Amino acid sequence: MEKHLIFMDIDGTLVAKDQKISNKTRSVVTELQQAGHQFYVATGRKYSSAVDVAKRLTAQTQVIASNGSIYSIDEMLHKKRLSDKALQFIYQTITAHDLPMFFFGEHTIFYTQQLPSYLQKNDQSRIGSSEEDFRFIDSLETLMAVSQRIVNGIVIADEREAELEQVRKILEESGLLSVSSSHPNNIELIPLGVNKATAIQAVRNSLAVPQKNIISFGDGLNDLEMLQASGVSVAMGNAVDELKRHAKFITDTNVEDGIANFLIDYFS
């Protein structure tokens, strides 16, 4: 069978809330890699967190991180970052609405306001791995002093979806960055013209794999472009309805081995 490239979102797709990868999924991916197919995780997470998950899946799994801002091809790392103008505009806009911001480097999270307890404890494996991974941003000057280290960011605010939608429109109309969302409670802040699909395009062009042999799995709206760029687009059973409407296939949920079950059927 011709070589395929398979891209998998992490949260809500490859893993559940406990951050574990099932033995069934690991076994299926390993078998397909041995047959010559190549796998990537494709996530909004920072690079070091994405690498951790990829290596827990298999040693050969590659990475697209920060919603396409960082990706690897044959062990070479490619990176784009939010511009200084974008960072200034984001900070001023979000601060005016008193919303919390998180900016991601390859290894560090820069945050404003108070770090939520779910990032410090229960969900720390989702974004960070130790206290040293976090750095507080108390002003625009502090942010700009580390601007060269910042790749992308996110705004997270539960129960303020209406206000988030207003802010998202302001950010979109600025023309300084790309925005997306993996959940109604957030706005993903991404370098202009970048998304998971642009990274996939770069990877498949470099590896000379036709679009019909691109398989992607996702569950959130920040996976939409990725699915649209793939010959075989698969929404998880737990995916948001809009993503399901754009996918060619719907598989089982992330806790029901949806990725493994689809791949077994597809390659059998």
Rank of each mutant, 00 (worst) to 15 (best):
E165I: 08
P191H: 05
F134Q: 03
A162W: 00
R135Y: 14
G193Y: 12
S180N: 12
V151C: 06
E163F: 00
A157E: 06
L176Q: 06
R126G: 09
Q114T: 11
N152W: 06
I154V: 15
I94Y: 04
T142P: 10
S147A: 14
D138I: 06
I170D: 02
Q148N: 14
H97Y: 13
D133E: 04
T112A: 05
L143F: 06
H107S: 15
S178D: 11
L176W: 11
L119S: 05
T95L: 09
L192P: 03
Q120V: 08
N186K: 01
F89W: 05
K169R: 13
K169M: 10
F89E: 11
V179Y: 04
Y118E: 11
E131D: 15
Q88E: 15
I127Y: 15
E106S: 03
R160H: 09
F103M: 07
I137C: 13
F89S: 13
D123E: 11
Q88N: 11
T142H: 15
R149F: 04
T95R: 14
P100E: 11
G175V: 03
Q113M: 01
F110Q: 08
S174Y: 02
Q88R: 09
L87W: 02
R149D: 15
I127T: 14
N152E: 08
S174W: 01
D133M: 01
Y91N: 07
V167C: 05
G153H: 10
F136M: 11
F104G: 06
N186D: 01
D123V: 04
V146D: 09
P116L: 02
E188P: 01
D123S: 13
T93W: 02
F104W: 10
G193I: 09
F89V: 09
F136H: 14
A96T: 12
L171N: 07
